[in-house]
């Protein structure tokens, strides 16, 4: 595969053509915050956490959806990026009803970890406190919209890996919601195979198994990427 030269955080690298900035960074041990990215799924650039500065480009671009190009000079940890990441993190918490202390994912939650990583010690934006439904209709799993951050990892895992397309997105802006089929209770879905991939893909306590309580949640999001890799090998 042809190689190109790029500079990331003052480090000169020879990298393969066709990869995203995020892929290149991961391969070279450069940490970038992500939330909607999950190995094995199509990247959509929804969470805006993996923003990078590229010399000559007057706006921040998401590393997960931007292809690397020759002679790019990229910075991943500027003060501006850190500031934006913290703002994004605060907005996640302000948008719905995240109460870590009573959440089933407490201690195992990517959103909680993000708060620590971005050094979020308070939230400057008014909480919206939207009224959100808790869908308990599925026999094994719960969907709690209070804890959903609209990363859409469940939507993509269901559509791209399981092929069931049970999950989808409804509405826009702060009224946006994950829906099952045509907004029917999850337990009444005609497409859901109850495979549980969405449970593993969900980075927060929004989708969780009914059988467990706080302290027992074990999500394995990496199985999504592993499944995709195994299928490629079989082919």
């Amino acid at each position: 595969m042809p190689k190109i030269s790029v500079t990331i955080d003052d480090k000169k690298l020879d990298v393969d053509v066709g990869k995203t900035i995020l892929e290149v960074c991961k391969e070279n041990g450069i940490e970038i915050l992500t939330m909607c990215h999950l190995k094995g799924l199509t990247d959509v650039g929804a969470c805006r956490l993996c923003l990078v500065e590229i010399e000559g480009v007057n706006k921040l671009l998401s590393a997960c959806t931007t292809k690397i190009a020759a002679n790019m000079i990229i910075r991943t940890k500027t003060e501006k990026i850190k500031r934006y990441q913290r703002i994004t993190s605060e907005l996640f918490f302000a948008e719905r009803n995240h109460v870590c202390s009573v959440c089933v994912a407490n201690g195992k939650c990517d959103l909680q970890k993000l708060g620590y990583k971005t050094e979020m010690n308070h939230i400057r934006y008014p909480y919206l406190f939207p009224e959100c439904n808790v869908d308990t209709s599925h026999p094994w799993y719960v969907l709690d919209h209070n804890r959903c951050i609209m990363c859409t990892r469940c939507v993509r895992a269901c559509g791209e890996v399981e092929g069931a397309h049970n999950w989808n997105v409804m509405n826009r802006g702060y009224q946006v919601r994950i829906i099952s089929d045509f907004d029917t209770p999850w337990g009444e879905s005609v497409t859901c195979t109850s495979c549980g991939k969405c449970v593993h893909a969900c980075p927060t306590g929004a989708i969780w198994p009914k059988a467990i309580v706080q302290g027992q949640l074990e999500k394995k999001p990496e199985i999504i990427g592993e499944l995709v890799e195994k299928r490629k090998m079989n082919l």
Partner: peptide
């Protein structure tokens, strides 16, 4: 009301 019953052992101690 509206929460899953299995969450109560974590919510009510608060």
């Amino acid at each position: 009301e509206g929460r899953m019953y299995t969450e109560m052992p974590i919510i009510t101690p608060r």
